[in-house]
Design a protein around this nucleic acid. Structure first.
Lengths: 228, 228
DNA sequence: CTATGATTCAAACGAACGTATGAATCATAG
DNA sequence: CTATGATTCATACGTTCGTTTGAATCATAG
């Protein structure tokens, strides 16, 4: 059983696919583009991954496995530190979204490229992609959801779930980083490199998310959400 | 110059394309699917619109022209009523996002189908689509941005622009309505029809957006954003 | 060194893609 | 009714798609 330098080929394909899927989407990226950029033979993808769909899944699994573990690790650390008491919403939000955003600064984990890919993929229309992502996220998501319920006992659970949705949306769009509507035109380019942009993004996004999470409940009810 | 029933054909194509682009994305939808669903000849799209790209643009223009006018109309009405004084942030947010969301309840304007299409398209990777949307949105966007600056004179403009971004993301993801991560599983299906879901969504989203917009500024600064 | 299994390679497959063509059909103007 | 231009239609064009194939090449085990 020779291993050869296949490890090299596999990773080169995954890197190229990650970058191209981010830039042009799943449907908009061809096998020939991927193998061309990776400088491997066209048949290599099917040999190593079986199909384009499987390649897509492997691109995500490579990153999400680590992210899932890290999010769980952070949550358990917070829980241990709290000693049975409910966590503060800010801790939970930081554990979930902060961990994701900090991943964007870690080049070994895909950096901003993977962040943008993930952000764009959350609204991707392809059914098999959404189904796969849902499965990958499910467990961690449920744990954080439960922890939010505990942290905000006076807020209806349905409301918390919705606000989790909204936070996901704001984050997903922010890391997709398309600036589709050219909002940031002349005012403040903040060009800099992607990593630098990310550093400034994190505190801004976090305070926005917390503000939204703690907002007064809709339709008349105005009770404080939490003593955050 | 005979007009024939071509008006019928054009609209049937636009309706089918709107639905299919929403469900499968631009790249994932073929001309044959579109003409098949619209029950017109394959060549009809190229005859009436020239190309698939032009069709995509027309699908959006048909709805966005009205949305742009309506958003402007609402803004001008608010300004007239305020008589030169700055508007309240809640008014601006409702004028921009509320107008969009209410469009989802108007079947003549595409209803939730177009809303979901728009939400998903904002993160679409295709360059020509983003460029087109940016151009369509530019003018109205700038006007609302300026009004937010006036309404929040103590908040740095860069901060406002970022929070506009975040609000767009939360809204875009919410109306894309994929629930990619199966957040809303068992807790509260809230099945009902799409319009009904929308009715409950609006107040929830609006209070989240305002909470985020009015959140304390990041990095230590904590001054109130506005006397909203 | 030789044998074996893993990997790479050039080439081709059928299918589906967006688009173009020219004849048939339609509605209306004169 | 006839002529004219708009629209529809069946069909085909040339590309590109994801995938497959079988031989060539490589690395290692015995």
């Amino acid at each position: 059983m020779a291993e050869a330098r296949s490890g090299d080929t596999r990773e080169r394909i995954l890197d190229a696919a990650e970058r191209l899927f981010m830039a042009h989407g799943y449907e908009g990226t061809s096998m020939r583009q991927i193998t061309g950029e990776a400088q491997v033979n066209l048949a290599a993808v099917n040999y190593h991954f079986g199909s384009k769909e499987s390649l897509m899944q492997e691109v995500f699994r490579r990153r999400l496995d680590w992210l899932n573990e890290e999010r769980m690790r952070v949550l358990h650390a917070l829980q241990a530190q709290a000693g049975g008491k409910p966590l503060k919403p800010s801790q939970i939000v930081d554990g979930f979204f902060g961990t994701l955003l900090r991943m964007g600064g870690d080049e070994k984990r895909g950096g901003v490229t993977f962040l943008r890919l993930l952000g764009r993929t959350l609204t991707d229309p392809s059914e098999f992609i959404r189904a796969f992502l849902a499965h990958e996220y499910q467990e961690v998501m449920d744990r954080y959801k439960e922890e939010l319920f505990r942290a905000l006992p006076d807020v209806p659970k349905a409301e918390i779930v919705w606000r989790f949705h909204f936070m996901l949306g704001a984050t997903s769009y922010a890391i997709a980083g398309t600036d589709a509507l050219r909002l940031v035109t002349d005012w403040q380019i903040e060009a800099a490199d992607a990593t630098d942009r990310l550093d400034r993004l994190v505190p801004r996004l976090m305070s926005f998310l917390l503000g939204g999470l703690r907002a007064p409940l809709p339709q008349f009810q105005d009770a404080a959400v939490d003593g955050l």
